[in-house]
Design a protein around this nucleic acid. Structure first.
Lengths: 167, 167
DNA sequence: ACTGAAATGTTCCTGAC
DNA sequence: GTCAGGAACATTTCAGT
């Protein structure tokens, strides 16, 4: 996988200009990246060459980041999903660095965001069961000091898509 | 690609047995599904045919759900990400059906979970900016009655992966 | 800038061993 | 598990529109 270099000069600040054909291509690839060039060309109503050129351009422009396989958490026995709301008292840079590293090092942490407002961080954590979550939690608070933690347990995944709304 | 038949007898309730080679294959495909069979075979230390048979088995068993392209939200101009905590007073089935449909219909809703505890639902919403979030919010509460909503604005995506921890 | 065709190399997938 | 081969596909190029 290509690393994201934050200092490189890709056109990420100014959002890329897309026409309807680009949008259709992106929309198709977001839902099924195993489609062949022939199938994509047919569905967007163009021929292979221009479609191929557009996909290349979208990749180079950084619109398409990568292609991945989506696995079923249940089939892997990962039946518990928690959203974790974190409040911290520490706000120095050293603490933040260690906290971020702790999150990046733990594969159970699927997603982590720093927030505006009185909750400082939100995590999405996918584990086998509640006991596995507790192990994760104990290990995390053992590694970095955290003021307050609220865990929200998901009972049902109503919707989960990797597809962004294409503007 | 083979169609998924929802009524078939896949072993999704009992988690599938995996050996180290399966785990390696899944781990590779989770981070880069554009790898060729040759490359995967080389990296897991096996030859093409057995690797191909394993991938087929993992697909048929429902462990590998699908293959998608991951897009960059910033490159698409989707610079605002909100986590939305929803409390409702209504708990009848009709309300739930309409609420779920409203979420499924809105492409800004990337993720939606029903929760245990005093917060009933959590949503992840990806939009262009705060104004677009407000439009989404107004439209949602206009469609279904919601008791209480808290929006958490993401300032920074610390980690975001589609890769599950493989047990 | 797109189409259609064609050439070439690569990869997939099957079947034999 | 290995190997080999035909089918399918991706990736260029090129002439015509």
């Amino acid at each position: 996988m290509a690393d994201k270099n934050p200092s490189d000069l890709r056109a990420e600040r100014t959002s890329v200009r897309l026409d309807d054909v680009d949008r259709k291509i992106l929309s198709l690839l977001q839902s099924d990246a195993s489609l062949s060039l022939d199938q994509i060309a047919e569905r967007v109503g163009a021929s292979k060459t221009p479609v191929w050129n557009r996909i290349r351009k979208l990749r180079d422009a950084g619109v398409i980041l990568r292609q991945v396989a989506i696995l079923d958490p249940d089939a892997l026995g990962l039946e518990a999903c928690f959203f974790v709301l974190v409040r911290t008292s520490e706000h120095d840079k050293d603490w933040a660095t260690r906290f971020l590293q702790a999150l990046r090092d733990r594969p159970e942490v699927i997603e982590a965001h720093r927030l505006a407002g009185d909750i400082d961080y939100i995590l999405k954590v996918q584990v086998r069961n509640a006991r596995a979550y507790d192990r994760f939690y104990q290990s995390l608070i053992g590694e970095v000091k955290i003021h307050n933690v609220t865990a929200l347990l998901s009972m049902e995944e109503i919707k989960a898509t990797s597809a962004l709304p294409i503007p």
